[in-house]
Design a protein around this nucleic acid. Structure first.
Lengths: 329, 329
DNA sequence: TTGAAAGCGCTAACAC
DNA sequence: GTGTTAGCGCTTTCAA
């Protein structure tokens, strides 16, 4: 490359990093050569001295369409930068997640975004000691990494209040259980669940509290709802902590011969685009994943540029009422 | 690291690569030191001389749960190896896809798996000239890369025959249109679409052929089905080329006040786990994505190890009949 | 403003 | 069986 342009490798490097001390003429010469050769700098070699211009995005899995919104937001933001994000699946256990993070670290990514990680705060801080970290969907306050999350407390409250206002009293909840050892107050599903309990209590419905502990996926929602719908008296509404679970709850209701919302109302969380389909028409909470992904990218780059003070970015959830919830009969 | 173990860096390298010429004693010494230090070899530095032990998986997007099956199969296979796969979104245009591939190439991945790529065969071969490539879900025969796909011709035929055997004659189809400039005979959606037409003809139903060209996603299926259901006479069955589109078709049917399968039968392709939910219960084609991901990983590693002869791995699709299809009334 | 040269952490060729 | 050494393609001093 350098020889083709008849300049030094240093010059090429400087142009690539638009560093100080290159004449416009030199810059042009190099840029022309880059074009002509279709030259692509080896991120790997750059990484030996400095940055790889690579970010890691650790997703628990890729089955939740909400994650796609986050990814799209991140990608859109990075488009204007030299950085590229690679995704890796964190999986269902801390061990697998740790392996994914190690894989990223050993490949010298410049920073890591972790979505709803299972790792403890202490573990995340260890990672943050090596590379800049932004954590999505967890609420703890760490001096060593940034956080991006929606106000799950408020979101869950919106759903439960909505159901109560419709006249429901026997409102059940499906929550998620995972391998995490983080404080429950920092985990989104625990927060949603706790908010559900709190609002129920505040309305004198403590005796109606009914929680199925399952998983935030279709099968989990199905299992959870089956269990809840077998109880007597049967709940008249189910708040599933995530749309994916709500889809399973709708399936369970259908299978039990119950019609939604006439026999049982169902609400979710995340407002995935499936929720908007007319035959599903699921009441849900919207939390702008695109914006969250975008913010995560921005914060991570800031940290890579040297920021050390922690930032917390929150998104305000909004209730989207659809046909899956109505007054009980 | 080497100094801590009191051995040469060469020894460490040899142990890491379990290469020829290290005594068991040396091996132990090094392994102990690795443990003690929590040493993680820098893939980036290894990559300067040889391999990065990193594979790239280019997915069009992460909204199709079928891709998650592929990823799981690939991950399961790689677990027994030293390789790690990173995902990157290929997007909806050739340009964005090319950028993703370039990002992978400039990061020196050892090989690339492309799922349903938009690029031309010639372009894929150029990439394959730089790094080993395995292409999923395309049918062309290239001497320079391996292919993994299901027999879309057979799969589509299974669906259409099934509908015909139920007694349907006005069977419509929803197909996908993308930015690809590959030969249509190599694109899965074109193959499914062509097989639909062929089987219709073979049964003397050429006059009933009705195709909506849209997209393999929920909105696409919805739009396509709306268009088809407005036609007079209305089709009694819709074969959507993918489950994601079928979900949209179910929504459109619902919205039009049509009940499934009484008024209109709907079938999909991919047998995503959503299809199995009781309230959706979508007839679909299963094509073992897990096995496809696994095979792709295996073939790619073989190529990295030096294989030059192309391999084509095909999966046999099977029909899964559920409640969304029935005899017309 | 420019380029020569050192060195990032490894691997591979080679000498011991 | 073991260690020494020369790079891999960049970035970053540092002289010119």
């Amino acid at each position: 490359m350098a020889s083709h342009a008849q300049v030094s490798v240093t010059a090429v490097s400087k142009v690539l990093n638009n560093a100080y001390g290159v004449s416009p003429a030199m810059k042009n010469k190099v840029k022309t050569a880059i074009e002509e050769l279709g030259y692509r700098p080896q991120a790997v070699a750059r990484g030996m001295r400095g940055r790889t211009f690579t970010l890691g995005l650790v997703l628990p899995h890729i089955r939740n369409p909400f994650f796609a919104d986050i990814l799209d937001g991140l990608t859109a933001y990075l488009e204007t930068t030299d950085y590229q994000a690679f995704m890796i699946q964190g999986g269902a256990t801390r061990k697998v997640e740790q392996r994914a993070v190690d894989a990223l670290l050993s490949r010298q990514v410049d920073g890591i975004i972790m979505v709803a990680p299972l790792a403890s705060k202490a573990r995340l801080e260890e990672v943050a000691k090596e590379k800049p970290v932004v954590v999505l969907a967890r609420h703890e306050r760490s001096p060593h990494y940034d956080s991006v999350f929606d106000d799950d407390e408020a979101g869950a409250e919106l759903v439960v209040r909505h159901l109560i206002e419709l006249g429901h009293r026997r409102i059940a909840h499906i929550t998620h259980q995972d391998d995490s050892i983080a404080r429950s107050a920092d985990l989104l599903h625990s927060i949603r669940s706790a908010a559900y309990e709190r609002v129920m209590r505040e309305h004198g419905l403590e005796d109606e509290i009914a929680i199925a502990t399952s998983f935030y996926h279709e099968q989990g929602g199905y299992d959870g709802a089956r269990e809840l719908l077998r109880r007597a008296p049967r709940p008249t509404a189910i708040f599933a902590g995530a749309d994916q679970a709500a889809l399973g709850a709708l399936a369970a209701a259908h299978e039990a011969g119950l019609s939604v919302p006439a026999d049982v109302s169902v609400a979710g969380y995340d407002n995935t685009h499936l929720a908007a389909l007319p035959n599903i028409s699921l009441t849900s909470i919207d939390q702008d994943g695109h914006e969250m992904g975008r913010a995560a990218g921005k914060l991570l780059l800031e940290r890579i540029e040297g920021r050390r003070t922690p930032v917390r970015f929150t998104v305000t959830p909004t209730l989207v009422v659809r046909a899956s919830t109505a007054a009980p009969r």
